[in-house]
Amino acid sequence: MAEGIISSLLKKSGKDIQASWTRDLAAALPTGKGRISASELEQQTAEFIKLLTVAAEHSRGADISASDFKALREFLEGVSRSRALQGYTSDETAAFIFSFKKPLFEQLRLAAGKDVETLANETWLATVLLDSLGMHTVKTFQKAREDVINRQQRDMLELSTPVVKLWDGILALPMIGTLDSARTQVVMETLLQRVVETGAQIAILDITGVPTVDTLVAQHLLKTVTALRLMGAEAIISGVRPQIAQTIVHLGVDLQGVTTKANLADALALALKRTGSTLKN
């Protein structure tokens, strides 16, 4: 019974393995930043060995997708998720599993004695099992990191599209950062929605914070302007820097029919004039 040896070994000398494993881990992990405490590490290793013992006892294969490994899988997912949030790199996280090999193999060698064949077989089985567990950990780690990135991207998307009311009937949209299709879509929808809500006649699109304007960005801007016009509002593009004006002309983008101004103040003055409001000093 292949797995039997590993599980009985874990049962018999689990404590020794854990002690040596924890020692290795503590030495390998960068503890200087105090990201994980020794007691936490000890608790995690103990939990892992306990779960692995149970799983290895019931399951004969190294197929970690089996239901016997469910508890172990979930435990590892928890560990790698917390590692991801604590800012560990993927190899540091994977090392948690892979460093388990050394103490385990040592114990295997002691248990197998002179039986080279059993030792080789058992080592191989343990390697396959631990490798797949390690891969699973890395996979979860990656996913946790991606979740973090996705959430931040979503947050940024929302943060970057504030529509502000400058005056009665005048809205302004200060755009900051690179405009891609997804962002422009959100910007356009938010702006048009606000135009409907407020009944604003003029919307000022301020592109001071947009680092570069290429044909795609220009096209997005033109689409927004056209959509605004279709709804019966008027758009003014402000904050066109000299370099951007040059780029637009060089690219041959046709901005005919779109009112553009160099800065927001000019755009506001024009908007006030068009809505018939006046400012007094």
């Binding site: 929808e189 409907v196 689409k223 056209t226 959509a227 279709l230 709804m231």
Partner: peptide
């Protein structure tokens, strides 16, 4: 008059 945002976006 009164074109909805979704309609305007679709037309564009």
């Amino acid at each position: 008059v009164g074109m909805q945002p979704a309609v305007a976006i679709t037309l564009v």
